[in-house]
Every structure is written in C-alpha cells, then in structure tokens.
Design a protein around this nucleic acid. Structure first.
Length: 464
RNA sequence: GGCGCGGUAGCCAAGUGGUAAGGCAAAGGUCUGCAAAACCUUUAUACGUCGGUUCGACUCCGUCCCGCGCCUCCA
C-alpha cells in the first residue's frame, strides 16, 4: 500500500518515500507565540501530528523540526505595551501552546526551534545571500527579481510584473512591492539585536529557511503548514533557501485547509473564535476535539461546530465501549474464520485510507464497519476467543493514528479496588432481588463518574 | 481581476464513467428486573445550475450561481 500525498508544488498526488535513508526530514511551521493558539491553528497542528503518526506507521523514522516564532511585530508591540521583556512575554504563550498540544496529544517534534535562538544563523544567511539582497534605510530586502522561478509553489506568474510599483506595504521602502524583508531596522523603542549587518531583527521568513537547513539539510523531504502560508511565506522560504544552497528546498509541500466555525469564518467579531482552552473549559473533552479535527481530511475545509463536537464525543464513546467489551466479555474457544478475514480487510482498508493522502474519513469508515460486524458477531454468539487479539490489534492500529481511545484522567476519582467492592455489594443485592439497594449503589457510583453495565458475563464498569 | 479549494441526505462527510461508504441525529424493533451497552430495520430516483461528450456521468469538458482561502500579517 504505497503512501501518497498531494504535493502543492506539483499540484498532484505523488508517491512518497524519503530521499536519503529511512528517515523523513520534515519541517513544519509552528506558532507565533503572541497569544493563545485557536482551534484553527490546531487543525493544522493536528494534521501535522497525523502526518507524523502516518509516516511512522509506514516504517519511517522522523526528524521533524518545528519553529516557534518568538519575535515579530505583534509580539514586540504587546510586550512593550505590557512592560514585559520579549522573553517574559513569549514564555507565557510558548508554555500555553505546549500545554495545549499535550492536551490534544500532539507529539513533540524532534526539535522545537525558537527564532530568537538563531539570530546569528540568520544574519550569516542574510550575508551569504548578498547579491540577492539590497539595503534600504537600514533594512535588508530580498530581491525576488533575482530568483527566476519565484511563484512556482503558489503558481503565480510574477514575470513581467516586477518593476514599477513602489508600495509602502510594510512601512519600509522597497524597490518592488513583492520584495520582502530579511532584516528590519528597529523603530523607536523597539527591541533589536546588534549585529554585523546593523541593529535590527529578522524578517519572518528567514527563520524557517535557516533553521530548516541547519537541522535538516539543504533539501527537506516534507515541508508542511496551513494553506494560507503558501503565499507569501513558503514561496519566500523557497526563494531564500534555494538562493542559499542552489538545491531544491523541499520535495513535498503539504498544506492543511482552513477551518470554519458554525459554517462561518472564524473571527473574534462574530463571537465564534475558540481557543483550545475555551473549549476544554466548557467541558469538551480534548479527545473529542482531536477526533473532530482529525476526522475531516486535511485538504478539505472543516466546519467546526459544537454539535459536531458532541457527535465526535459520542462516536469515541462507541469505540471505547467496543474495546471494553472486547476486553471483558468471554467467548468460546476457537477462531471465527469469516470474522478474522473481515478484520484483516478492515485493517487493510484503514491503512489504505490513511496512506491515500491521509484520507481519515475513509479510514474511519473501515473502523466503524468493523465495529458493527464484530458487535453483531458478539451478539449472535459467533465471536470466538481467537478473534480477540486481531480485533485489539486493529483497534491499536486505529489508535496509533487517531489516539482518542484512552480517556483523559480526571483528578479525585474512586480507586479501582473501591469500585470493585461496591460492585460486589450490588451483585449480592441483586441476587437477593433487592433491586432498590442495587440501583442505589449504581446511582451512587454514577454520581462519582462510574458507569456500571450488566452483561451476560457479569458486571463491567467504565469511567464517565 | 489573478491563483487555489469546495458545493453529496436534518448535520458532518467518503467515493467511482455503469446508477451513492461511514459517523451523528430521528423513528420503530430485539435484548434487559430496570438501565447501560449492543444489534436489526427505516431515512438521498440521487450528488449546486444549465449545457456538452458518452451506450451510460454524481464521477470528464464548458457555462453560470454560491461558499472559502491566498494575492498585506495570518493555521
């Protein structure tokens, strides 16, 4: 089952393997830590996490770098306004970001690279870019006219269109509207670094080129991010990097589509702007959020709704119930061959879906079809003990990508031993046909978040 | 205006040139002391519009309408 991804560069689905060895060199654009990340940011970061897990499931090792943009106009403005140092300010949001990622079970990349720790690497790169740059009022710009294939990622044609206009887009003087800043001279009261190319701070794009090349080499296997970064950010990264190394910057470019909220674009003014902590604070399980973000294939815009979140929570619950049943019910010895075959088919269909450009919707369909089949077999007594390992293995395969089956632990819950004792007491009451007492015990446990289920093989319980 | 993505059942959402996966919701049923869980049945004469190609299109081509993204910072 070959692994395929849609490559923004070629505008086609291509088979993927790493260029050099079995290790995938991957760079993904991380957060700008000027505020709490919102659910739209996490759509992209969840996609990246699925990508990691998918690559690993295909037997590849990962060397993945993600940047933390900890210096930019907004950060400087906010830090100054709050009388904080840059570090004080960005530390707050960097830590919040990492907490949020942990809540969503997003794996930590092999390296997180803060821009401010690479200022001198960037200065070196800007110097090396020499003929592709020019200075103006203390700032340094990249001259896109010096890079003939500029526009190849976003499929824009800039030839013939490069001179004339003198636009003051960024409050700096540029020779051409499309030229972009590599180094920005400080304005009054702004934070700056004193360097060989003068005082200032890096432009946004250069950090990614520099850190990617430094840690991963001249040519990346995969570069990924949100679709809004295609132009100008990734286009500019290509220009800088390829002028620096003379080699293709990345083989595969993957971009996640945007997210909408309740059918509308997310915006603070519409009141549909959610951070992860908003949603968790309202009682939505991080797993449900993760599931919803993961369930829509990344190249399709995702309509994030509270109803959808509830549906996601219920869907997860069904899968968890199935797993619990698999682990607690007892079945006759032997193997149901027909079911074993269907398990294998479901597993293959799941992998095929994931490997087909991360078609998570297709993969999920295989999971739910299997769950229905297996539950039916259990109900009709056709399920055999020998089918359990395969079924659990398939669920593990599913969870190795989706990672939603384990419930997020809550503080202050009853211990297992205590629960078992209460269940004993209830079973005794039932035997004595004292249903009133039995129900009372069940209700008490429920009030503490423990759900009891009577099955033909005895009582089982789960945490709410 | 340029570039890119999309419009499939109440909602979310796959998919193929030969007549529509899956999830949620809804209704009915089975099982159960009651629940819970689970299962079964039902729910798109039809895939935005109008044309074209074809023996046949939701799937290809063109038109139009609508939504979204980028073109200035942005996941």
């Amino acid at each position: 089952m070959p692994l395929r991804f849609y490559n923004t560069l070629s505008q086609q689905v291509e088979e993927f393997t790493p260029a050099a060895d079995n290790t995938v060199r991957m760079y993904t654009c991380g957060p700008t830590v000027y505020d709490f990340a919102h659910i739209g940011n996490f759509r992209t970061f969840t996609f990246v996490d699925l990508l990691r897990k998918c690559l690993r499931a295909n037997g590849f090792h990962l060397n993945h770098v993600m940047n933390i943009t900890d210096v930019d106009d907004k950060i400087i403005r906010n830090a100054v306004a709050q009388h904080k140092s840059l570090d004080e300010y960005t530390k707050i949001y960097t830590e919040a970001f990492l907490e949020d990622c942990a809540a969503l079970r997003l794996e930590r990349p092999e390296r997180l690279a803060p821009a401010t720790e690479h200022i001198h690497d960037m200065v070196d790169a800007i110097q090396k870019l020499g003929p592709h740059t020019y200075s103006s009022d203390g700032s340094v710009y990249f001259k896109i006219a010096s890079f003939p294939t500029y526009g190849k990622l976003s499929h824009n044609d800039f030839s013939g269109n490069l001179s004339g206009a003198r636009v003051d887009v960024d409050e700096y003087e540029k020779a051409d509207a499309r030229d972009f800043a590599l180094w920005k001279t400080p304005k009054e009261g702004e934070i700056f670094w004193d360097t060989e190319i003068g005082p200032g701070r890096p432009g946004w794009h250069i950090e990614c080129s520099v850190m990617a090349i430094k840690y991963l080499g001249d040519t990346l296997d995969i570069h990924a991010g949100g679709i809004d970064l295609v132009f100008p950010h990734h286009e500019n990264e290509i220009a800088q990097s390829e002028c620096l190394t003379g080699k293709p910057f990345a083989r595969f470019w993957l971009h996640a589509e945007f997210l909408m909220v309740e059918g509308q674009k997310m915006s603070k003014s519409l009141g549909n702007y959610y951070t992860l902590r908003d949603l968790v604070g309202k009682g939505h399980a991080p797993e449900a959020i993760r599931y919803l973000l993961a369930s829509v294939p990344y190249r399709k815009s995702l309509n994030f709704t509270i109803d959808g979140l509830k549906s996601a929570a219920i869907a997860i619950e069904r899968l968890r119930n199935f797993k619990l049943r698999l682990e607690t019910d007892r079945y006759a010895d032997g193997v149901n061959q027909q079911l074993a075959e269907r398990t294998a088919l479901a597993s293959a269909a799941f992998t095929a879906g994931i490997n087909d450009d991360l078609n998570t919707a297709e993969a999920l369909a295989a999971v739910f079809e299997f769950v229905r089949d297996a539950n039916s077999a259990m109900d009709s007594g056709e399920f055999r003990a020998g089918n359990t390992p395969d079924a659990l293995q398939f669920l593990n395969l599913f969870d190795s990508i989706f990672d939603v089956l384990k419930a997020t632990a809550k503080a202050g819950e009853l211990g297992d031993g205590e629960i078992d004792a209460r269940i004993e007491a209830r079973t005794a009451a039932k035997r004595a046909r004292d249903f009133k007492l039995a129900d009372q015990i069940r209700d008490e446990l429920l009030a503490q978040g423990i759900i009891l289920e009577d099955t033909k093989n005895g009582v089982r319980w789960k945490r709410k």
